[in-house]
């Protein structure tokens, strides 16, 4: 075990995979200087500018070229900088990467990882703060991963690079400096296997990405009030660990889903509906209002799902 940051975990995952497989390469704006957040720092020195490649500010080409390069047998790791900018390449991701294998009748695979940092990061405002994971969970052909810890950022990124499907890999910008224990040696986290963050008998909370940490603090507070939370970090939205969520919700009889993304049409709705349809237990969602994210801290904070809101929602569901 080593204690490293969420960013360092991702960097070492990529470096290990690039050492293992010559066909893995990364491309995106400013990668030669280490990437906008420093998540590629030092890699160009080891792997050279062909494999840690800078790119023009051409999101459609960054993604679209990677589709072509993936179909030709390489394994690109695509850096989109912010999930907001990846919207400039939605055709390439949704109509091309996600569809090629199916519409060409299985003649090809598109093994690529599309890194799209998400989430609120102090005063980044409406075009640099969004959490758009549910958009991609909706698209057949894509895998969607939202790691919340350094260990998962290492293990999921390595799995993503080895995966033959296109993976939308959403790191949370606020988590870059977060430190945690990461297993030594080969550490792979499979897709579709949730992580039980803590166990409790009274209510199930499902979350992912940075929101998991908010829920963890809320669960701590609730524990002090005698309420036991079964907290599940989903890790990947597609596939999502239905079995783990259903098992927990059937034990506790109550399910709360909390996410930073807008609640309307969010992935919480999918989980809530599935659990309600399958078990008939009480479900509730906590997601952001359907408002853009503001610049001024009080405006930004007004759309945040807080620890206090999570505690209040749980107490309300329990009638306590």
């Amino acid at each position: 075990m080593a204690r490293i940051s969420y960013m360092e975990a991702a960097r070492s995952a990529l470096a290990e995979e690039m050492r293992r497989d010559r066909l893995v390469w990364a491309v995106g704006e400013d990668l030669g200087r280490g990437g906008v957040f420093g998540q590629y720092k030092g890699l160009v020195e080891e792997f050279g500018p062909e494999r840690i490649s800078d790119a023009p500010i051409s999101e459609a080409a960054i993604l679209g070229a990677s589709v072509g390069a993936a179909m030709m047998g390489t394994r690109p790791v695509v850096e989109m900088r912010f999930s907001d900018f990846a919207l400039c390449a939605v055709d390439e991701l949704v109509n091309q990467a996600a569809k090629a294998r199916f519409m060409f009748g299985g003649q090809t695979r598109v093994p690529m990882v599309v890194r799209e940092p998400i989430g609120m990061w102090r005063s980044s405002a409406a075009q640099h703060s969004q959490s758009l994971e549910s958009w991609y969970a909706h698209i057949p052909g894509l895998v969607v991963a939202c790691p919340s810890t350094p260990a998962d950022n290492k293990g999921l990124l390595k799995s993503a690079i080895r995966c033959d499907d296109p993976v939308v890999y959403m790191e949370h910008k606020n988590l870059w400096p977060l430190e945690g224990e990461v297993p030594d040696g080969e550490h792979l986290v499979p897709f579709g296997v949730a992580r039980t963050v803590r166990e409790g008998r009274d209510i199930t909370i499902v979350s992912w990405s940075a929101q998991v940490h908010v829920c963890e603090r809320a669960a701590e507070t609730l524990a002090g009030q005698g309420i036991g939370v079964d907290l599940i970090d989903l890790r990947t939205l597609w596939p999502w660990d239905r079995a783990a969520v259903l098992a927990s919700a059937s034990r506790t009889g109550r399910l709360l889903i909390a996410h930073e993304a807008v609640q309307v049409g969010g992935f919480g709705a999918e989980i809530a509906a599935t659990v309600a349809e399958t078990l008939g237990v009480k479900v509730r969602r906590l997601g952001a209002p359907r408002a853009p994210i503001g610049y001024a801290p009080p405006v930004e904070d007004a759309v945040r799902i807080t620890e206090a809101m999570t505690v209040a929602a749980v107490r309300d569901m329990l009638g306590r």
């Binding site: 390469w25 062909e50 080409a61 390069a69 690109p76 091309q96």
Partner: peptide, 13 residues
């Protein structure tokens, strides 16, 4: 753009 990428892979290889 896909063609550019296919060519990119050819060059890398």
């Amino acid at each position: 753009v896909i063609a550019a990428g296919a060519a990119h892979a050819i060059k890398l290889k």
